[in-house]
Structure formats: C-alpha cells, structure tokens
C-alpha cells in the first residue's frame, strides 16, 4: 500500500492503495465515481478513458502510481448539466447514447482532439476516434454530435 496524490477534475485527492492498482479502481472504488467505466481492463475499448494532463489515457491499464502529481480529468470535469462542454450539449441534442457505457471514452477523446485540431475533417475525426468502441452501434449519431459540437466551438 502506498499513498498516491493527484488531482481529479481540479480537486486534490489522495488514495492509500496498491501502487500497481490501475487508476480506474481508485476512481471508482476509492473515490466512488460512477464514470469512467470498466469495459475490458485491457486498454482496448475506451470505456475507462480519462485525460491525464490533457491526454486521453486508458485508466484500466495505468497504474495509479503513474498518476502521481498529475491532473486527471473525467467527464465530470469536462462539464456539468449546469455548465456543459459543447460535446455534452451536442450529445444530449443528438440523443447519442443507447446504453451509454462507452460515453466517457468518446467525449474525452473527442474533446482532447478538437482542442488540438478544431478544424478537423470527417476522416480525421474518424481516425482520431477509431480506437473507441460502441457496441450499441450509435456511431452515426456520435459523428453527428461531434460535428455539431465542432461547429459550436469554432
């Protein structure tokens, strides 16, 4: 067990855990957060995505010790119902999620990408989001929402 301190959504947190434990378990079990989710535990699906110092990162394979002193952003930090990120607004307007389990990955990855490349075209967006899974097949509305948000952010 070791004490690991980092920031989550702008708040300083500290957990006393096995330093090899993936960050995801610290967020969900120690900090009692409902998102991100456990999808595969192999870094393959993206349901566990957080931003680590602004970069999309799979928290299910990142040892919590690697988050030490860094800034973790989840969808709670991305926006709230009162102060939503344009992507969240677009997701609601386009009624994107079906089961919704994959939402963290798409939102955070798209947010980080649009920040870097606000004028990205369709194929660039597809490429940037290609590592994520949605098994309900909402991809058509995901693209609609991302492009809607992109317009709004321009």
């Amino acid at each position: 067990m070791a004490k690991v301190s980092f920031a989550v959504d702008g708040k300083a947190v500290s957990v006393d855990v096995d330093p090899n434990m993936p960050l995801l378990y610290a967020l969900r079990d120690d900090l009692k957060m409902n998102a991100p989710h456990f999808g595969c535990g192999e870094g393959q699906c993206g349901a566990c995505t957080v931003l680590l110092d602004g970069e999309p990162t799979r928290s299910c394979v990142l040892p919590v010790s690697a988050a030490k002193g860094r800034k973790v952003t989840t969808i709670y930090g991305l926006g709230t119902p009162k102060k939503p990120h344009p992507l969240q607004t677009a997701y609601v307007q386009e009624q994107v999620p079906q089961c919704g389990y994959c939402v963290s990955g798409w939102l955070l990855t798209a947010a980080a990408f649009l920040k870097k490349k606000p004028a990205a075209g369709d194929s660039e967006l597809r490429e940037a989001l290609s590592g994520l899974k949605c098994r309900c097949g909402t991809h058509v509305s995901i693209m609609r929402a991302v492009k809607r948000a992109q317009k709004q952010m321009a």
Binding site: M33, A35, H37, I75, Y76, V92, V96, P97, G100, V103
Partner: peptide, 21 residues
C-alpha cells in the same frame, strides 16, 4: 419526445448496474 436517460449518461450522473454499492 426525447429520452429521459440521455443526460444522466452524458454527465455521468446516472447509475449503471456496475455502480450499485
């Protein structure tokens, strides 16, 4: 009419079965 579960899923305020504690 829009769905009722979308906002909770987009803002992480709703629960999935994996959040039952």
């Amino acid at each position: 009419f829009p769905r009722n579960d979308v906002e909770g899923k987009v803002f992480g305020t709703s629960d999935w079965v994996s959040e039952v504690r």
